[in-house]
Nucleic acid binder design. Structure first.
Lengths: 351, 351
DNA sequence: CTGAAAGCGCTTACAG
DNA sequence: CTGAAAGCGCTTACAG
């Protein structure tokens, strides 16, 4: 590999001191226009890029943001991440991604992975950290996690997508998560459905609790009875949706429609219905949340609440930049959920 | 933010010189066991993490790998990336991800995004770069891209997933991409299909050309005639699959089965068939490539060739580490494609 | 086995 | 507006 060109090379070429080159490149002090031009020309000619190590050593800044995510192959996270990366880049930051492969199934084992992520961020001296998913999504975190996150936040600005964790000095940002469920319930009841199941999600996870609460409140708001046997939890992927629907069918609790935690769960659930000889929407209607990429091409096309989660990515980055730059804290812009009507709902069959 | 602890703090605490601390921490020279223990204890006690800027300034190493990817929300890339990140981490490297949002549709405009990615990698002084997708997937790249990639490779080890580009000093790694198509064709012909369409993919893209070539060769191998009107290209997402199938149907060329470039394309194509009143597999059989996450839950479940692309991620990282460490070049381990039989194929209806 | 010292490539007071 | 010099926190010959 060829040796990189340094500020000294540019200084020599432009006939000035390295200090002046630095001033021109960082626009950190007035420099005579003629000098300035010579410096810029020299830098350009040699494709000069300041050494970030040297720069970091004095500024203590890496121009890098760390992002902790459990699983980038989950479209919920990858959509969010893409937005985060774009926003970060536009603000002049690179993004270090750490995939902690966290799944609520075995929290104790995997806490270590998240702690390792925290450590990495510290080692790499990122300028700020975004924590998305993992234990931050849970109602209760382990003590080790609390400590690790606190230590991290003591040394670098941290923004967490989630509800505040007691005594942890991060900035927490949470979205409104119940309104979409209400939209879905209203839609289903307007079609005459009265026995509406809730499928997917895990207990102990914030989003599940929030949506479940909205489900319970929504039913009462709409004057429908709550039947706990219509709630079938699992997790957030297609196999889980399949299992949850199987369990629901096995319970023989009657229902004419269901709410799915997301499109993958919906897919699995619809598959389970099909395997039981039930069609969507002819026999059962379905509204899903968190619309993913291919929902418009499934059979049936999924009616889904689009939470516009990905737009939230930019808000997260902006909050983090505020923390880094110590600027005033604007409240994150809210993005309203939107019910996308497709084919998976139909008026309830008259009994 | 609290001021970080430095090697001097540890040296003082352990009653040794900073040089000795460095030796212990890097295991770079013999140190008396007693001294060693004191140093380690002090480092531990203060959660000491060496400053990567200072370290990088002398070593010129960042312990960071750069990964250039067009779109992390595409499951093909996110599956690959997850494996890359895991392998990199296990080798002690962090990963900087740059999303270039490249789509072959408007190459000229987007070359700039990829060049910007190259520049970023250089600025950040990553220890090595992995180039995945984008123009690297194309049969022909722009001159600007060639120059940018060459300049990058002149300064840092670069591994490209793709076919060699003339005069560019990178290591290129390519997979075998035709065998899966042959498996699919054999399966379909064994079911009696003789008019098999090819749906999805773009001309000018390597993988499309490779699979198309395998399709042409496979047909002749199996003694079937080639009918160009059964080839309907588009790109790699569900909407494209939909359009491609619509076009194929509009052409009225008869076929009883089709090969899809990937599961998203298959989904779109099957949707288009459904909208035309045709069922899979009853009316038309389908084999897809590049199995994605939810293929087992679609209606119908997709029969698909699993290329095990994600396993390739580790091979890429290993190749890059070899380039970085200047070690001998092992040929990348090959991963054979595997035909996953599900529900989307059925014997051809007797005419 | 251990320490003193130079040096990596920048930025930033301090002079002028 | 510009330069000389110190210093950021490490690592690595060089001595001993």
């Amino acid at each position: 590999m060829s040796k990189a060109v340094t500020i000294l090379d540019i200084a020599r070429e432009a006939g000035v001191s390295p200090a002046t080159v630095s001033r021109v490149l960082n626009d950190s002090a007035p420099v005579a226009e003629a000098t300035r031009k010579r410096v810029l020309a020299a830098a350009e000619a040699h494709h000069y890029a300041p050494n970030p190590f040297a720069r970091g050593l004095v500024s203590n800044l890496s121009r890098t943001l760390g992002v902790l995510i459990p699983d980038i192959t989950n479209p919920y996270f990858s959509l969010l991440f893409r937005e985060v990366e774009t926003a970060a880049r536009q603000a002049g930051y690179s993004v270090l991604l750490y995939n902690s492969s966290f799944s609520a199934a075995d929290a104790s084992d995997l806490t270590e992975q998240e702690l390792e992520g925290f450590r990495r961020m510290l080692e790499q001296r990122v300028d700020g950290v975004l924590v998305i998913g993992g234990q931050a999504d849970l109602l209760h975190v382990t003590e080790a996690y609390r400590e690790g996150l606190s230590r991290l936040a003591a040394q670098v600005p941290v923004v967490v997508l989630g509800d505040p964790i007691r005594e942890v000095p991060c900035r927490f940002i949470q979205r409104e998560r119940g309104h979409g469920v209400l939209l879905a319930l209203q839609h289903l009841t307007s079609l005459g459905h009265r026995r509406i199941a809730f499928v997917g999600g895990e207990a102990e996870v914030g989003i599940t609790e929030a949506r479940l609460a909205a489900y319970v409140d929504g039913l009462s708001l709409l004057g429908l009875p709550l039947d706990r046997s219509l709630i079938s939890l699992s997790d957030y992927y297609a196999p889980a949706g399949y299992r949850a629907m199987k369990a629901l069918l096995a319970s023989r609790a009657p229902f004419t429609a269901f709410l799915a935690m997301n499109d993958h769960v919906a897919l699995g659930a619809i598959r389970a219905l099909a395997d039981a000889g039930l069609r969507v929407p002819e026999d059962v209607s379905c509204v899903s949340c968190d619309r993913f990429l291919t929902a418009d091409y499934c059979i049936p096309r999924l009616t889904s609440v689009d939470q516009h989660n990905e737009r939230f990515g930019r808000a997260l980055v902006e909050a983090l930049l505020e923390e880094i730059q110590g600027k005033p804290t604007g409240a994150p812009r809210l993005v309203s959920p939107e019910l996308i009507l497709r084919e998976s709902c139909q008026p309830v069959a008259s009994p």
